[in-house]
Measured scan of single mutants.
Amino acid sequence: MSIQHFRVALIPFFAAFCLPVFAHPETLVKVKDAEDQLGARVGYIELDLNSGKILESFRPEERFPMMSTFKVLLCGAVLSRVDAGQEQLGRRIHYSQNDLVKYSPVTEKHLTDGMTVRELCSAAITMSDNTAANLLLTTIGGPKELTAFLHNMGDHVTRLDRWEPELNEAIPNDERDTTMPAAMATTLRKLLTGELLTLASRQQLIDWMEADKVAGPLLRSALPAGWFIADKSGAGERGSRGIIAALGPDGKPSRIVVIYTTGSQATMDERNRQIAEIGASLIKHW
């Protein structure tokens, strides 16, 4: 068994979910400061990975656009189908120029040979490839089937209604394609530690997140040497930005962190900087 497989195998399969305990108010002060700096709502939650206990939260039950963070949930649904014998990671999917949508850096290079389901999930999570996400959504039956998958695992909040790139529209008070920080954190924890997926599929999902190549300016920029992070970022219209992550010291994950913001006029660089500063405070007061 590899070190990575050993790491995931040791994560307990508890489903406990406790009331908020504000253990590190310094980080919450930074979250509130980020709201002021961005002129926007910021949602934040931090869960203990083992117990599910809420360590910190701010606007945990307010809706925020999911943006590309939904791609982790999508690949979780795909892996669930693989575990059930309904899908194969090695199955090759062919597509055409007409299937390509905005921001598809991986799929646009494989119009001739197509891509396997495994490769599409990797592209969707590590590079946030939008066409890969749409092709994967098609394999499970579309956005409503992803919502149904989430409902079946106990998440009655998170919903996907549209395809890429329309799902990033982020209209105020529009519940389409949204989640809440508390719901997303709990669902991510179930996918990474629960019995919904096999150990091999849980390991595959966290491996894809660990290999994320487009979230460098966010939490990763604040991470000390030797820390572990597996994450997925998202960006949308109307100043929307977000990240979901499993992270921790000593090379293994010990907490789930979810950060969303929407409604800002700030630049992407400024949104990234504020999320990175929240991450720096989190690590400082770990």
Rank of each mutant, 00 (worst) to 15 (best):
I3D: 07
Q4A: 13
H5D: 13
R7C: 07
V8D: 07
A9V: 09
L10A: 15
L10I: 14
I11D: 01
F14W: 06
F14S: 01
L19V: 15
V21S: 06
H24Q: 14
P25T: 10
K30R: 09
V31G: 01
E35A: 08
E35G: 04
D36S: 11
Q37L: 14
L38Q: 06
R41S: 08
Y44G: 01
E46G: 05
L49G: 04
N50R: 15
G52V: 03
I54S: 09
R59S: 08
R59A: 04
R59T: 01
E61G: 14
R63E: 05
R63H: 10
R63A: 05
P65H: 04
P65L: 02
M66C: 06
M66G: 06
M67D: 04
M67G: 15
T69D: 01
T69S: 05
V72D: 01
G76Q: 01
A77R: 15
V78C: 05
V78I: 11
L79V: 05
L79Y: 01
S80A: 14
S80E: 13
S80D: 11
R81G: 06
V82Q: 05
V82C: 13
V82G: 04
V82A: 09
D83A: 04
G85S: 08
Q86I: 12
Q86P: 04
Q86K: 11
E87P: 01
E87D: 08
E87C: 06
E87T: 07
E87A: 07
E87V: 09
Q88K: 13
Q88D: 14
Q88C: 11
L89W: 05
L89Y: 06
L89V: 06
G90V: 11
G90D: 14
R91T: 09
I93Y: 06
I93M: 02
H94Q: 13
Y95G: 02
Y95C: 02
S96V: 13
S96D: 14
S96L: 11
Q97R: 14
D99K: 12
D99R: 09
L100F: 12
P105S: 06
P105R: 05
K109N: 09
H110Y: 08
L111H: 09
D113S: 15
G114D: 04
V117G: 01
E119D: 13
A123E: 04
A123T: 03
A124G: 06
A124R: 00
I125D: 00
N130S: 04
N130T: 01
A133C: 05
L135E: 05
L135W: 01
L136Q: 00
L137Q: 03
L137W: 02
L137H: 01
T138A: 15
I140L: 15
G142V: 01
P143C: 06
K144M: 14
K144V: 12
K144P: 15
L146R: 06
L146Y: 06
L146T: 04
F149N: 06
N152C: 13
M153L: 14
D155N: 03
T158P: 00
T158D: 00
T158F: 06
L160V: 12
L160Y: 01
P165E: 07
P165H: 05
E166M: 13
L167C: 15
N168M: 04
N168I: 04
N168H: 02
E169K: 14
E169V: 13
A170Q: 08
P172A: 12
P172E: 15
N173P: 08
N173Y: 13
D174T: 04
D174N: 05
D174L: 02
D177C: 02
T178W: 00
T178R: 01
T179G: 00
T179L: 00
T179A: 02
T179I: 00
M180G: 11
M180A: 11
A182E: 15
A182D: 13
A183V: 12
M184C: 05
A185Q: 09
T186V: 14
T186P: 09
T186G: 15
T187F: 05
T187M: 09
T187H: 05
L188V: 11
L188W: 03
R189D: 07
G194A: 09
L197Y: 06
T198S: 15
T198A: 09
L199V: 09
A200C: 11
R202M: 06
R202G: 08
I206V: 14
W208R: 00
A211R: 13
K213A: 09
K213V: 13
K213T: 13
V214C: 04
V214L: 10
V214A: 08
G216D: 08
P217H: 09
P217T: 13
L219V: 11
L219K: 03
R220C: 02
R220G: 03
S221A: 11
A222T: 14
A222N: 14
L223P: 02
L223T: 11
P224T: 06
A225P: 08
G226R: 11
W227C: 01
W227R: 00
I229M: 08
A230T: 01
K232N: 00
A235G: 09
G236V: 01
G236T: 05
G236C: 02
R238G: 11
R238P: 10
R238S: 14
G239C: 02
G239L: 01
S240C: 10
S240L: 01
R241T: 05
R241K: 06
R241C: 03
I243W: 04
I244Y: 01
I244C: 08
I244H: 00
A245V: 04
A246D: 02
A246L: 14
L247W: 07
L247G: 00
G248A: 02
G248W: 01
P249T: 08
P249W: 04
P253L: 09
P253T: 10
P253H: 10
I256A: 06
V257I: 09
V258A: 06
I259L: 12
I259R: 00
Y260F: 08
T262D: 08
T262G: 06
G263E: 12
G263R: 07
S264R: 04
M268Y: 06
D269A: 12
E270D: 14
I275G: 00
A276V: 07
E277K: 11
E277A: 12
G279R: 00
L282Q: 05
L282S: 06
K284T: 09
H285G: 12
H285A: 10
W286L: 09
W286C: 07
W286G: 01
